[in-house]
Nucleic acid binder design. Structure first.
Lengths: 128, 128
DNA sequence: ACCAAAATCAATAATGATTACTATTATTGT
DNA sequence: ACAATAATAGTAATCATTATTGATTTTGGT
């Protein structure tokens, strides 16, 4: 992995962006370095990097994918007002996989916990 | 709400289907009663019924929406082998909203917890 | 019962995100 | 350096969903 200039840059862009960027945000950032890069390249490499475990893919409710350099176990909060994505630590739901496996009899490979609501920034603005 | 034949049938179809049907599955079922029904009608009414709280919309990872007649608080497990959707009771993650609100300072309106893995049916088949 | 206003419909076009395809270019092992 | 392999740019195609439009149905008031 990671032997093309495009792929290396895409990984670096995601890893230096705390804002859980969308495909298009990565594309716009990459175009500053490689102006004629193809959008298909961005899609292909983001998905490859996610499959490879270098980054994580987040599916949000509006039907667009976001990408997260933090591959550790944690959850997300998406503000329905400003669309920003925040991290939520995994200890809000301790032992959730073990409990779900016991109840369902299944083998759980992954899970996603996503909250929607109004973030504290937007709450402040609404009070004014 | 619910004064058109189409809308009533759509609600009935979802309410009598335990399998968390997709838009297309509802469309196919509805066509048996109203052969010339429009797909747009199914989309519009499923979304209206979900907004109204009569049914619940589930966004799955493959980019298609599923609909659930059970509007009570519960979670979902999706088998990556057979794509079936199973229910998981909400007590796998007690107080998760309260904890997440405290940690994030936000106002949480909704949350989704979805597990992916191999269901117990497919596990049985693989052992043979 | 009648009629105007509002809601809903069918049919289809448009949209937006994503994936597939193809010919070309870059990278790798020998 | 050279052949084999992989990745790319550019573009077309796909798929789920939403918007549009003009016709039809339902509703609420008289």
């Amino acid at each position: 992995m990671n032997y093309s200039r495009q792929r290396e840059l895409i990984l670096k862009i995601v890893q230096s962006d705390m804002s859980h960027p969308t495909v298009d945000a990565v594309y716009q950032a990459l175009r500053k370095e490689i102006p004629n890069v193809s959008l298909a390249t961005v899609y292909r490499n983001l998905n490859l990097l996610a499959e490879n475990g270098d980054i994580r893919k987040i599916e949000s409710l509006d039907g667009t994918a976001h990408f997260d350099f933090n591959t550790g176990n944690h959850y997300h909060f998406i503000c329905i007002n400003c669309n920003k994505v925040y991290d939520i630590p995994c200890d809000v739901a301790p032992d959730v996989v073990k409990k779900a496996e016991e109840l369902s009899g299944s083998h759980i490979i992954s899970h996603d916990l996503t909250f929607q609501g109004i973030c504290h920034e937007c709450l402040k603005l609404k009070k004014n």
